[in-house]
Amino acid sequence: MRPAGGPGRPRPRAATASPHPAPRADGPAERPSETTTRLRPVPAEAPAPAGSALDGTGAPGGPDDGRTPPPISTGAVPATPAPRPRNTPAPGAGRPFTPFGPPPEQYGGPEQYGAYDGQARSRRPGGQGRPRIVAAAVCLVLGVGLVGGAVTGGWLTGGPGEGGARGAFAAAGDLWHSVPVDRLFPPTVQGRGAGPGGADRTWTRIAVAPDSGCADAFDPLLRKALDPAGCARLLRATYTDATQSHVTTVGLLFTRADAAATASLARRFEKEGLARRSDLMPLPYAARGTAAAGFGAGQRASWTVSVLTDAPVVVYAVSGWADGRAVDDPQPAEEAMEPGATTAPAQAGLGHEARGLADRIERGLRKHAASATEQPS
């Protein structure tokens, strides 16, 4: 049998869907550049299923949609939010209330907890003033306490200032019985650059005088000049140079004067030039059986006297030849050390001997005085 429709007529075929359906009348036309089928928004009369990407809670379209995302509603939040294109504001940006901490409902709402506008300024009236005032007051109290404590500590420990200076002055006056003699007068003293022309010197101690008073230690005029300071103790030692050609006696006179009297004596020696007068030379200490056995008053060739102002001490030194030769024209160390000096003491370097050894003993004395005033850590 032939199918209905008559002989020779072809059988009708079923309609097939076109791979590119015609666009809907209510949707936007497809751009010519698109080559794939894209999802279009559902018409308003056909609402999308709740929770889908087009119901207002997710991102519409795809990454090339080019439209601004719709506002975030207060509906249910999807379990996995759709990816957001780069360089686009996060959903919910620009919200007027952003709490930093627990939910504001715990503090009575935004008015009690505080809110921030777009310029990050606090909107809570009076919320910052009181804590800042309290913090400033605490810092002020702590600062005053620290300053007061430092000042009080300085008074108690005799730190820098007038009190500390008096403590160091008094401590230096006690060194004659608190420091061993070998530290005040070392057996060997190195004098780098202490000789003529900056040559090095080495002095070896050959005799130490017993500590004593000042009755017979100075000539009458020098004893009279030193009398206002008083005499607490006198320490002396005699040294010889490496060649044993010269001998030098160095002395430490510990006075009874206070700081004011010591400063007055130092000004007088400086103003009147008492340290340069040959009738105010110190006497040497000559020890039997040593190279200084013949070192008497007539053998004094050069000398120096220094009244310290930071300690109740007078440091002096006097030098001569070890062979006991007499000296008719002694010369102060400062003059014998001047360039071009032609006197016998200057040519022999005896001015450098007296000045150089006295300087090293004085440095050691100051070092011991500083150690005596250091506070334990």
Results as ranks from 00 to 15, higher is better:
T36C: 10
A260N: 08
P28H: 10
A17M: 07
R40P: 02
G62E: 11
P339Q: 14
V181H: 02
A76C: 02
K271V: 00
A237R: 05
P332M: 09
G158M: 05
G6D: 08
H20E: 15
A348Y: 03
A171N: 13
A82S: 14
G324Q: 06
A53T: 08
G198K: 08
T290S: 05
G56M: 08
G230E: 08
R40C: 03
E34P: 00
G108D: 12
G161H: 07
A90M: 07
A50L: 13
R130P: 08
D216V: 03
R366P: 07
V138G: 10
R67Y: 08
A266G: 02
V42H: 12
G75I: 10
P104N: 06
T204F: 06
R166I: 06
Y107F: 15
C139D: 13
P60K: 13
V147G: 12
R360C: 00
P89E: 12
P78K: 04
T309L: 02
P21N: 13
L265E: 01
D323H: 03
P345R: 05
G61Y: 11
A358V: 00
T342R: 15
L265P: 01
D65V: 04
T262W: 00
P196W: 00
C214T: 01
R132F: 05
S122C: 11
D216S: 11
A217L: 09
G61Q: 06
A311I: 04
G324R: 07
A14L: 13
A170D: 14
G195A: 11
G101A: 05
P345F: 04
A172H: 12
T248M: 01
P89C: 09
M1T: 12
W176A: 14
P70S: 12
A369C: 09
V147W: 14
F254M: 04
G364K: 08
R132K: 10
E270I: 00
G364V: 01
F97V: 15
P187T: 04
A237Y: 10
V208Q: 12
